[in-house]
Design a protein around this nucleic acid. Structure first.
Lengths: 228, 228
DNA sequence: TATAAATTAATAGTAATACTATTAATTTAG
DNA sequence: CTAAATTAATAGTATTACTATTAATTTATA
C-alpha cells in the first residue's frame, strides 16, 4: 500500500482559488507560509500584504491565487478535512467489526494531529491549530447559504456522513446519527480549544484525552458495551 | 415571585464598557440597536459608524460607551449568558429530583428563545441568533488567555459549572461532567446553526428538536432511565 | 436660578485594510 | 525563437477602526 499512498493529493473545490496553488512553487509557498502566519498572528490580523512580505513575494501575486483571505481560509479548511477523510478511510479500511471501526474513526477524529511527511509544503500540526481556533469563522458568515450551495463545505459534509454511516451500522435504531457525528467533529475541536485556553470547564487534559471522553460518550450513547 | 423578578438586571463585568450602557437612554439604544444591526449585516461588516447612523447618533458617542466592537460583542454575549443563567436558576429552583432538574436545565439551554418583556431594550430572540452565529468569535482570538484572566468569560464558566454540578448529582461516578456540560452549551448552538444553514448534517428540525437530541443523549450517557 | 460639571455631538484627521488596475519583467512552452 | 503565460512592482481607492479636539446640551447642586 505504501507506494500507492505516496502520490496522493487532496482535491479541493476549484471555486476556492483562481489558480491552483499546488501547481507552482509560489502557490505552495503561499499555502504553507499562509498557514504559519495565520497561526502566528490570528486570522483577523492576517493580510496578503503581510504574507507577501513573509515569503518575499508581492501582495498582488497572492491575489492571482486567491480572491481574498476568506477563500484562503475555506481552502485550507477543505484541505484539512480532505486529509482527515483520507486518514479515516485508510485507518478503518481493514476493520470489519462495526464497533471497532467506529471507535477507530473517533480516535482518528479526536486525537492530536501528527505531521504527515507526504505533504512537505504543509505543516499539519499548525494547520490543526488553525482548524481549532479559526475554522468556524469560515462558515459563521452571512454568505454561508450561498457558499454551501457552491459546495464550499462538501468535503466536511461527506466526512460527517461517513461517521454517521458508521454510527448507523452499530446502532440502526438510533435516530440522531447525523447530529451525533457533526457534534463529535465540532465538539472535539471545542474540547481541544478549552483544554488549551479555558481549562476549568473541560475534563480533557494530557492524561484524560478528548478521545477518552468521546469514546466513552459513544459507547454509552449507542450502548456498545452490551454486544461488542 | 413576580414582583421580585420585575426589577432584575443582568450584571456584566464593568471591564467591558467605558460607561454602563444601562445608565442612559443612549446606552440602551446602542445595545438594543447594536444587536439588531449585527444580526442584519453580520459582525464583520458591523461598525460603530453604521450603528451611529442607525440610531441617529454619532460614531464618537458610541466610543464613549465601548472601546471597540469586540468588547461590544463580549458585552452582549455576557448579557445573554447572564440572562440564561437567571432563567436556569428560576426554572429549576423548585425541583428536588436531580434527574428532573437536569432535564429541565437541558431544556432551558437547548430550546429556542422567546422574548423576555422585562428587558425592553433587548430583543432576546435576535440576540440568540447572534449567539448562534457570532458569539464564538468573542473567544476565538489571540487575546483569549488575557481576556479569560480579566474575567470576560466568567459568567459562561459559572453556567457550565452549574450544569456540571447537576450532572454530578445525577451520576457522581461519571468522570466527564465538565466536558459534557460545555459540549451541550456549545453543541446546542452548533445544532441550531446546522438546522438553519447546513441541514443535511443534522437530525434537528421543527419536529425533532435539539432538545430531544440532547435529552436523549443525556439520558443514555448518564444511564438515567434505570433509576429515575 | 445660576453656574459648574458631566455628557453628548460634531468635525477632522490617521494609519491600516482589502482590495483593483496597469505596466513591466521574467519564465515557459511550442 | 517568439508568443503566451506568469509573476512582480507600483500606484491608487474606499472603507475601517479608531483618536483628538472643540462645541453644544443636559444635569446636578450651591
Amino acid at each position: 500500500m505504501d507506494k500507492l499512498l505516496e502520490n496522493i493529493n487532496i482535491t479541493v473545490n476549484p471555486e476556492l482559488y483562481l489558480k491552483n496553488p499546488e501547481s507552482s512553487e509560489l502557490g505552495k509557498n503561499i499555502v504553507g507560509h499562509g498557514i504559519l502566519l495565520i497561526d502566528e498572528i490570528g486570522f483577523e490580523k492576517f493580510t496578503f500584504k503581510k504574507l507577501g512580505a513573509n515569503i518575499k513575494s508581492n501582495e498582488s501575486s497572492i491575489y492571482r491565487y486567491f480572491e481574498n483571505k476568506h477563500k484562503f481560509l475555506v481552502y485550507i479548511t477543505n484541505w484539512y478535512w480532505g486529509w482527515k477523510e483520507f486518514q479515516l478511510t485508510v485507518s478503518t479500511y481493514g476493520i470489519s467489526n462495526p464497533h471497532e471501526k467506529l471507535l477507530k474513526a473517533i480516535e482518528v477524529i479526536t486525537h492530536p494531529v501528527v505531521e504527515d511527511l507526504r505533504f512537505r509544503h504543509i505543516n499539519e500540526v499548525t494547520l490543526n491549530h488553525i482548524i481549532i481556533n479559526e475554522s468556524s469563522k469560515s462558515y459563521l458568515t452571512k454568505e454561508v447559504d450561498s457558499e454551501n450551495k457552491e459546495g464550499y463545505f462538501s468535503i466536511y459534509k461527506r466526512l460527517v456522513n461517513r461517521v454517521s454511516d458508521m454510527i448507523r451500522e452499530v446502532a440502526p435504531e438510533y435516530g440522531f446519527s447525523l447530529s451525533l457525528a457533526s457534534m463529535i467533529l465540532d465538539g472535539a475541536l471545542h474540547q481541544h480549544f478549552l483544554r488549551d485556553h479555558i481549562a476549568s470547564i473541560t475534563n480533557c487534559n494530557k492524561t484524560t484525552t478528548a478521545s477518552d471522553y468521546f469514546k466513552d460518550l459513544m459507547v454509552k450513547t449507542l450502548k456498545m458495551e452490551d454486544n461488542g
